[in-house]
Amino acid sequence: MKTYIFDLYGTLIDIHTELHNHKVWKALSDMYACYGAIYTPEQFKQAYLKFNKEEWKRVEELHPDTYIDIQFKNVFKRLFDEAPIHTEVLPIQDIETWLLFVETEFRRLTRIRCKPYRNTIKTLQTLKQQGHQIILLSNAQRSFALAEMGICDLIPYFDHMYISADYGIRKPEKVFMQKVLDDHQLDVCDCVMIGNEVGSDMQVAASCGVTGILLNTAHRKEKVIQKELESLQQEYPNFQYQIITSGDILEILGE
C-alpha cells in the first residue's frame, strides 16, 4: 500500500476568489450590522485588509523564521470588537459558532469558481479502490477547505486531513509534513506528495525525503519549472520528482 499525500487548491480543486467586489463588502457589513457592529461597506473592507495584515505580522513575530498560518476567526472577531459604532441589536449567544458562520459566509461571498479538475474524482476513486491511503496536506482554513471539498464531493476519499490553520504552520515547513509521517508511522519510500507548487508542495516533500509529483495546472513553462526543481534538488540531492504538464492527475497511475 502506498500513501498519497495531496495538496488541495490548484491540485485537486480549481478555485478562484475575488475580494474586489463591492457586493461582498456590502453583504458582510450588512451582516455585522445585524449584530450591532456598524460599518459602511468601504470601512469594512479597509478594516478587514488592515486587521488581516496585522494578524499575519503578529503571528510572524511570535514565530520568526517559521512558515506560519493564522486563524481567520481572529480577524473576524476583531472586526466585531472594533467596529466604529456598536448598537444593541441581536446578541451573539455563542461567539465561536458565530465566527465560524462568518468565516464560511465570507468565503462563499468571495468564491467565484470552485470545481474539481478533470479526472480528480476518478483518480481518487482509483487510488481508493486499489487500497492506497489518501491524506490531505493543505495550506488552508478548515472552514474553507471542508466546505469546498464538500462542494466538489472529495471528502469521502480522504483517510486523514491536515489543514495548516489548525496547526499554525504551513507548507513548506518541514514539521507540517513530518507530523503526517510520524502520526501514521509512514515509510517515506511508500509515500508520494502531489501538488502544484514547487516552493510549497515540492519543497516540503524534498525536505522530508518524499517523492514529489508536480501538477502543472497553471500551465507554466516546463523549462522554468524544471529549473526550479533542479535548484531544489541541489539542496536535497536525493529528491525524486516528476512533472505532469497536462494537469491530468490520472497520469500518476501510469494509465
Rank of each mutant, 00 (worst) to 15 (best):
M1K: 09
T3W: 05
I5Q: 05
Y9E: 05
T17K: 12
T17Q: 09
H20S: 08
N21F: 07
H22P: 06
K23V: 06
V24C: 03
K26N: 02
L28E: 00
A33K: 05
C34W: 14
Y35D: 05
T40E: 02
E42K: 12
K50E: 11
N52C: 13
N52T: 11
K53W: 12
K53C: 10
E54R: 14
W56K: 12
K57L: 12
R58C: 09
R58E: 14
E60G: 13
E61T: 07
H63V: 01
H63I: 02
H63Y: 15
T66A: 03
T66C: 08
T66V: 14
Y67L: 10
I70N: 01
Q71A: 08
Q71K: 13
F72C: 07
K73Y: 11
L79S: 01
P84T: 02
T87E: 03
D94S: 09
L99W: 04
V102C: 11
V102H: 02
E103T: 02
E103M: 08
E105L: 09
F106N: 02
R107S: 06
T110Q: 11
R111W: 15
R111V: 12
C114A: 15
K115S: 09
T120D: 04
T120C: 04
I121E: 08
T123C: 15
T123E: 06
T123Q: 06
L124E: 07
Q125N: 10
Q125E: 14
K128A: 09
H132A: 02
H132L: 04
Q133D: 07
Q133G: 02
Q133C: 06
S138F: 05
A140V: 05
A140I: 05
S143G: 08
F144T: 10
G150V: 07
D153P: 07
D153K: 12
L154M: 04
I155C: 06
I155E: 09
I155H: 01
P156A: 12
Y157G: 05
F158E: 00
M161R: 11
M161A: 13
M161T: 09
A165Y: 01
D166S: 05
K171Y: 02
E173G: 03
F176A: 00
F176W: 04
Q178E: 15
Q178K: 14
K179M: 12
K179G: 04
D183C: 00
H184F: 13
L186P: 00
V188K: 13
C191D: 11
V192F: 07
M193Q: 10
I194Y: 04
E197G: 00
G199P: 13
S200F: 13
M202C: 15
M202E: 08
Q203D: 10
Q203H: 14
V204Y: 00
A205S: 15
A206Q: 01
G209K: 03
L215P: 08
N216T: 11
T217G: 12
T217M: 12
H219T: 12
R220N: 13
E222C: 10
I225D: 11
E230K: 15
S231N: 15
Q233W: 15
Q233F: 14
Y236C: 07
P237T: 07
F239A: 09
I243L: 09
I243D: 06
I244Q: 12
T245E: 09
I249P: 00
L253N: 03
G254A: 00
G254S: 05
G254R: 06
E255W: 14
